[in-house]
Design a protein around this nucleic acid. Sequence first.
DNA 1: CATTTTATCTTTACGATGTAAAGATAAAGC
DNA 2: GCTTTATCTTTACATCGTAAAGATAAAATG
Lengths: 240, 240
Amino acid sequence: MTSKMEQVRARPRRIATSAARLRVRRAASAAGEAATPYHHGALRDALLDAAERVLERDGLAGLTLRAVAREAGVSHAAPTHHFKDLTGLVSELAAIGFTRFNAAMKAAGDSPGTPVERAMARARAYVAYAQANPGMYGLMFRTERLDYSRPSLHEAAEASFAGLAGSVAARSEGQVGNEELSIDQAATIARAWSLVHGYTMLLLDGRLADILRRAPAGTNAESLLEAMLKATVPKLPPGA
Amino acid sequence: MTSKMEQVRARPRRIATSAARLRVRRAASAAGEAATPYHHGALRDALLDAAERVLERDGLAGLTLRAVAREAGVSHAAPTHHFKDLTGLVSELAAIGFTRFNAAMKAAGDSPGTPVERAMARARAYVAYAQANPGMYGLMFRTERLDYSRPSLHEAAEASFAGLAGSVAARSEGQVGNEELSIDQAATIARAWSLVHGYTMLLLDGRLADILRRAPAGTNAESLLEAMLKATVPKLPPGA
DNA sequence: CATTTTATCTTTACGATGTAAAGATAAAGC
DNA sequence: GCTTTATCTTTACATCGTAAAGATAAAATG
């Protein structure tokens, strides 16, 4: 009884109830205007937009098929036709995230300066993207519900890795083809990626808060990243 | 969820149905033996054991309150009394994971050798723990459903960080107290933790597979870690 | 030792979710 | 103009988390 009451009390007013939607549609069609047409026209993109809004507002846990459908103002089963699954929707959204991420990294890599400066700029861009889009970054690197067999996601994630690998390894030796990597190249790529990815994950999880609090006043995520990289990036393999 | 669907399709024979449990208890009590006593006696620990089994068998998505109760052979609401929430159960399990993790790290740090060798041993132990207990590691570092206000989890996680920070920073300067960190100390700690944590996450997510495949034959997760650290760990801050 | 209290466990119930299946509607194709 | 197909809605069901109430046994108390 108490729970029921609380649930009723806390229940948000759902504007997009089935009945309400139907009434709107009927009224609109009677009036001659198509306020909420039966066929949306661009529901797929609208659902992805809605999903991103839900994700950044309510976090990964709040990103449900039904919540996305509500946000888009359609019935709860509408997404099924476009994405089949929650996995499908989430994977498509992650693909968008990777694409934007790739663009941000490319932009940062095209900045002027020495190779080392450009590498630092990329690292900063990496962390900045995650900080600006924590939900998206979590979706891309934290969720287990991604289907990498989907071409869109597979390609976007692949491009992301290729960009990183190419930019990192290009500093030491020649271009990195699609094949063979020397152990030093492999280690260099793994080190750069692990360092920045690990830093980002720990930062988003709030696990660097202690370190930042105990560091000299004024130290923040950016300056700590800077200090962390300064002792690492310049120490490139001298040759061998 | 996909897992839900699969569970429905491949629904296993539930030995621990309510009715079945009741029948067993009645029969047992009629026979004089206490096969399934109403009061379990040590249900809390049994539930944690069951939770770990479920976690390593069905992954994070399969770790539900009801699944744990089934695994332990009690009613689905039994865990509530001991853990209040799914968050509660998950947090207690994560605390156990951190405790074991701390023990493994401590053991690795106590090994003989130079400071650098001990640091490498710790890094290997870090990755090895995650590889041996991927579910647990995911629970500790991937889930958002942890309640760090719980003393058990808070202390275990805190000890984990303290051990890492102490062992890392002790190599460069004096002991790391509970307060002030120089920017170099902070950067050194962040670098070590980010590197090994990022490597572990990428490894568990299968994102290092490409690199490993393209690396020289025979390269595996351990040897790549070794190569990655070799160029990093020895380059300690010379002094300033 | 008998009775009361408390802790533990089960049953029942409700709202939420994912997803399948069937019905409704409108666009597209012929 | 009619049929087909794509899109969206309704309905239905199994599952989940969690609250509340009932059942049972251990502990406390007199």
